[in-house]
């Protein structure tokens, strides 16, 4: 793995009233890696990725993208910087169809009368939507179906496909495998690997550590708003990550035989 840092979070703090959701969190994301962001419910994972995506704004701390400081005031600014996010509560518009959802926020238009009027390129967007889904191996029978009539897995796939198709630098997935059937989970994880092969960096949040270990290169663990550890996937295992998440103490031998001690934060 090239050690080029693509995204760097420095001392991020976020408060909701009196509640400190994130407390001085610093974290680097490397180019072309899959980082699993794990932690218990309420640890602050979603809050952290929403800050990276411009959906909420931190109280303190800085974000650097490829070494440059960025201040995303809204999601569109993060998108312009090549960061695409699949939110935990699936940001799809149920009443719009599949193609409309895939292109929501980045509609293709054709200019007439020298740009005074712009009209949607319906057919082009539908064609591209089919191509996007085909390339990712996602089967949706009717691209004009409103997404409210699709299964959970299909909806999840569409959300991930949207991120995969348009994320130039970073793709963030918040609980993409929650509430999916086994086969569908496999599919989503395949999508993550495909994106990585394209040279993109991925942050994946999941409660299922087995899923995380199937795709992640590295782990970052949050506990009640603080970062309590980072591990390379090859240097750790599920037991250790669980201890980090829950705050239990663990003494175990590393793969190289050395004894490592993890203490409560």
């Amino acid at each position: 793995m090239g050690k080029e840092v693509i995204l760097s979070l420095k001392n991020i703090t976020k408060k909701f009233g009196a509640l400190v959701a994130l407390d001085d969190v610093s974290l680097d994301l490397y180019k072309n890696e899959v980082l699993a962001l794990v932690g218990d419910n309420g640890a602050g994972k979603s809050t952290l990725i929403k800050i990276i995506s411009g959906a909420i704004i931190q109280n303190r701390g800085e974000i650097y993208l490829k070494g440059r400081k960025v201040d995303f005031a809204s999601p569109i600014e993060a998108k312009r910087a090549g960061i695409e996010t699949v939110y935990q509560d699936l940001a799809l518009v149920d009443s719009l169809n599949v193609a409309n959802n895939l292109f929501l926020g980045r509609e293709e238009k054709v200019s007439v009368l020298g740009g005074t009027l712009k009209f949607l390129r319906h057919r082009y967007m539908e064609k591209r939507s089919k191509e996007i889904l085909d390339t990712l191996g996602i089967t949706i029978p009717n691209i004009r179906e409103q997404v409210k009539f699709l299964s959970g897995g299909q909806r999840q796939s569409i959300a991930v496909a949207k991120a995969a198709a348009f994320g130039k630098n970073i793709i963030i997935l918040d609980e993409p495998t929650a509430a999916l059937a086994v086969k569908e989970v496999g599919h989503i994880l395949e999508l993550v690997k495909k994106c990585k092969e394209e040279g993109i960096s991925i942050i994946i949040i999941t409660h299922n550590l087995e899923h995380a270990f199937m795709v992640a290169d590295r782990f970052a663990v949050l506990r009640v708003g603080k970062k309590v550890g980072e591990r390379l996937a090859e240097d750790t295992d599920i037991d250790e990550i669980v201890k980090l998440i829950t705050g239990g103490t663990l003494v175990k031998n590393g793969k190289d035989g050395s004894e490592r001690k993890i203490v409560n934060a």
Partner: peptide
């Protein structure tokens, strides 16, 4: 009719009415 069906503004009218939060996250003002 043309505004509703064939412009981005029209598409966003439906999107925001359907799910304003999702529209915001997708970058709609």
């Amino acid at each position: 009719h043309i505004t509703l069906k064939h412009t981005q503004f029209g598409r966003y009218l439906f999107a925001v009415g359907g799910n304003s939060n999702a529209s915001f996250l997708a970058g709609v003002n």
